[in-house]
Amino acid sequence: MKYREAVRAGLREALRSDPRVFLMGEDVGRYGGSYACSLGLLEEFGPERIRDTPLSESAFVGAGIGAALGGMKPIVEVMTVNFSLLALDPIVNVAATIRHMSGGQFGVPLVIRMATGAGRQVAAQHSHSFEGWYAHVPGLKVVSPSTVADARGMLLAALREADPTIIFEHAALYPMEGGPVPDNMAVDLSRAAVRRAGKDATILAFGANLWKALSAAEELAREGVEAEVVDLRVLRPLDDDTILSSVRKTRHAVVVDEAWRSFGFSAELSARIMEGAFRDLAAPVARVCSAEVPIPYPKHLEDAALPQPGAIVAAVLATIGSGTAIAHGRV
């Protein structure tokens, strides 16, 4: 099963099991979803529940909030996180605030799915990663499925949440093949997952960058370095326990984030590790992020702008420092 098929399977399952669930967004119906995630759903569920919208991000996200307040279980698809900036007001000022601001009277059980990330040569207005902006906001839950099982399972788990949950699907993952996903497989929506065990360094990543981290770990293994790879999965609230226990074990941490380094998610992660495991660290936390430029169109420049396995390998080796490197005959 491909990642996009897993999203579709999750959507279909949710729509079949709960009449309050409906999908709304640009081109989710007749077009089948801009990433083909909802292909065929219009035929099965009809235009009321697979609801094409005008290009009005602010209004249809706001309407999703209103529908959730009105007792429905909407899934709003925003074509990409870049477009979601047109809907920042309803997400940040309404969905995230209303429970607290109303003294606990109103909650917004809304699921917002959006594609994120670069790597497909679609240039500076379709390639950015703003997960950290949303993860900054109290009242939101932010998740990022990196595997086919999570693509289906996290959607179903998000629909059981009482609060607004944003699911970031990295666009490079949609065609990824990930084997079968059993229908009844439940996933946890609070924990990070150790995707590869290791003892020498911890690589923290999420979304498509998990796969770059795993490929870096493969290469490191050939060099005799055993990197542990943690898939963050849930960006808010962060699973500090899993992150810190891995770092305490390996004493080295490398954060991989496709967003820019400055003032971003990777800075928060690094600060948390410093606050929670300072005395266990053998070296400063290292970061592999995108270059501080709008993502450019040509492939060689786009590749150069993004975190790549080679840079992750280099960062791990630099972090664990000369001691390990000497042991493996690299100096």
């Binding site: 309050r20 409906f22 009321e48 602010s58 209004a59 249809f60 996200v61 706001g62 309407a63 999703g64 909030i65 209103g66 529908a67 959730a68 307040l69 009105g70 007792g71 429905m72 909407p74 007001d89 309803p90 000022n93 309404v94 601001m101 109303s102």
Partner: peptide, 22 residues
């Protein structure tokens, strides 16, 4: 109780949509 001008309107649209659908 929405204090950013016009942001209540899409919420009202959603509430009305929920009424119509349910």
């Amino acid at each position: 109780g929405f204090a950013i001008v016009a942001e209540g309107l899409p919420v009202a649209v959603g509430l009305a949509l929920a009424r119509k659908m349910s």
